[in-house]
């Protein structure tokens, strides 16, 4: 299980990376943390002729807070995010989701941008970033463009990134006051990809009702799946057990996951409802502290 030969390129700057991508096109593959790409290369399921390593590219690893909003460089390591007091304070959903991404040695290398660009439908980070209304910045030969996470993911392992673009930044808007979040998943073993997972963001308005609400699932479709009808069901109400149960039912009726080796479609649909109810209950209880 050894990778096929490739040419190794390590650009120092983003423009250099972009121009390498532009020059080599589909023959080249960007290497971020490598925790998904390198296994595929070792199995020769991926055989890029050229590997463009972003690990030596300047200016891609940072966490910045601007008026409560967060800007995260694409090459920021998952472990760095997980331990960042800024992230923990502003966006506790991320560390909660990150703790479920593989294992510590995976998160030492894995990057947020790499996880989003790889777009595994069972992965936690795409769902979390979508639930946080994240904006993803891509840099290419034509400059930068920013697109919402919800339209970034196009299919299984497919994103809106053009072949000559680098995912350079993730921006997360400030969460409203009294926001509670929860990432919950069902996996066979700790650190496995989720059979089903959900990222929930809910805010408590001053009148005690739920304002902003997001429910985004992983493992139930080709991309992270947002269930807007469930959000509408909680938003504007004072959610209680009956509402949470109604959300469960709605989620179960709405989602149309596929089955695979690890779980059937029926299982995923049912359990998506369960994790939605549980995560929503927890997230709502956390709005008291937000």
């Amino acid at each position: 299980m050894k990778p096929a030969p490739f040419e190794y390129l390590a650009p120092r700057t983003v423009p250099e990376a972009v121009s390498l991508l532009a020059r080599h096109g589909e023959e080249a593959k960007l290497l971020a943390g490598g925790q998904s790409l390198v296994p595929l290369m070792n199995m020769r399921l991926a055989r890029p002729r050229r590997v463009i390593d972003l690990n030596r590219t300047q200016g891609l690893a940072y966490i910045r807070e601007v008026n409560g909003a967060l800007r995260i460089g694409g090459m920021t390591r998952q472990a760095t995010l997980e331990r960042s007091p800024v992230i923990g304070g502003r966006c506790p959903l991320l560390p909660e989701a990150l703790a479920l991404v593989g294992h510590p040695a995976i998160r030492s290398r894995g990057t947020i941008g790499g996880s989003l660009a790889h777009a595994d439908p069972a992965a936690e980070l795409p769902a979390a970033i979508a639930a946080l209304d994240g904006q993803i910045t891509a840099t290419g030969p034509r400059g930068e463009r920013t697109l919402p996470a919800t339209s970034f993911f196009l299919g299984v392992l497919t994103t809106a990134l053009a072949p000559d673009e680098v995912l350079t930044e993730i921006a997360l808007p400030a969460l409203p006051p009294r926001t509670g979040t929860c990432f919950l998943e069902v996996a066979r073993r700790h650190g496995d990809f989720a059979l089903v997972g959900v990222a929930v963001v809910v805010s408590r308005r001053s009148d005690g009702a739920c304002g902003h609400a997001r429910l985004v699932f992983c493992g139930v479709g080709p991309t992270p799946v947002r269930v807007a009808r469930a959000e509408a069901l909680v938003s504007g109400r004072r959610p209680d057990a009956a509402v949470f149960a109604a959300v469960e039912g709605l989620v179960r009726e709405t989602l149309q996951p596929d089955g695979d080796l690890h779980a059937s479609a029926d299982y995923r649909r049912e359990v998506a409802g369960v994790v939605a109810r549980r995560a929503l209950t927890t997230a709502w209880s956390r709005t008291n502290h937000g």
């Binding site: 066979r188 059979l195 779980a263 059937s264 029926d266 049912e270 359990v271």
Partner: peptide, 19 residues
């Protein structure tokens, strides 16, 4: 005994509500 097996058995259990 997978989680799926357990759920699927419970789903088909005669004496129960669906969930």
């Amino acid at each position: 005994i997978t989680p799926d097996l357990i759920r699927s058995a419970l789903r088909q259990a005669p004496a129960l509500n669906r969930d």
